[in-house]
Amino acid sequence: SISSRVKSKRIQLGLNQAELAQKVGTTQQSIEQLENGKTKRPRFLPELASALGVSVDWLLN
């Protein structure tokens, strides 16, 4: 799922939720909701993929 991929990649990069949120241009709460499965397809998906160094396709599939 996107939530597990985001969380595992974030941890692999040594980032906390607030640091990832800053790179993406969103809030820590938005990252938390995404990782908890409350958000399925965030509006900041391209920025998120870029910050994590992955493709949008990788996040979604």
Rank of each mutant, 00 (worst) to 15 (best):
S1F: 10
S1K: 09
I2K: 03
I2W: 07
S3Q: 09
S4W: 13
R5Y: 05
R5G: 03
V6F: 02
V6L: 06
V6R: 04
V6P: 02
V6A: 09
K7Y: 10
K7R: 12
K7L: 09
K7D: 01
K7F: 08
K7Q: 10
S8Y: 15
S8M: 15
S8I: 12
K9T: 08
K9W: 04
K9E: 03
R10E: 00
R10K: 00
R10H: 00
R10T: 09
I11T: 10
Q12R: 09
L13T: 03
L13C: 07
L13G: 03
L13K: 06
L13V: 06
L13P: 00
L13Y: 06
G14N: 07
G14W: 03
G14S: 07
G14F: 04
L15G: 01
L15Y: 11
L15Q: 03
L15F: 10
L15T: 01
N16Q: 08
Q17A: 10
Q17R: 15
Q17V: 13
A18Y: 14
A18V: 10
A18E: 12
A18P: 05
E19H: 05
E19A: 09
E19C: 05
E19F: 04
E19R: 04
L20N: 01
L20H: 00
L20Y: 01
A21M: 02
Q22N: 11
Q22R: 13
Q22E: 13
Q22M: 13
K23A: 11
K23H: 07
V24F: 02
T27F: 05
T27V: 05
T27I: 05
Q28D: 05
Q28L: 15
Q28R: 13
Q28I: 15
Q29L: 12
Q29H: 13
Q29D: 12
S30T: 10
S30G: 10
S30M: 15
S30R: 12
S30W: 15
S30A: 15
I31N: 01
I31Y: 02
I31M: 04
E32C: 09
Q33T: 14
Q33W: 14
Q33K: 13
Q33D: 15
L34I: 12
E35Y: 00
E35N: 03
E35D: 01
E35I: 02
E35P: 01
N36H: 08
N36Q: 12
G37L: 04
G37E: 05
K38F: 14
K38V: 13
T39Q: 11
K40A: 13
K40T: 14
R41E: 11
R41T: 12
R41I: 12
R41M: 14
R41Y: 15
P42Y: 10
P42A: 08
P42I: 14
P42F: 14
R43W: 15
F44N: 07
F44D: 04
F44V: 03
L45Y: 06
P46S: 13
P46N: 13
P46K: 15
E47M: 11
E47H: 08
E47Y: 07
L48P: 00
L48K: 00
L48G: 00
A49T: 04
A49G: 04
S50M: 14
S50V: 14
S50Y: 13
A51G: 03
A51P: 00
L52K: 00
L52C: 01
L52H: 00
L52G: 00
G53S: 07
G53E: 09
V54N: 01
V54Y: 02
V54I: 06
V56G: 04
V56L: 14
D57I: 10
D57W: 15
W58T: 03
L59A: 00
L59C: 02
L60S: 07
L60M: 12
L60I: 14
L60Y: 09
L60V: 12
N61W: 11
N61A: 13
N61V: 09
N61E: 11
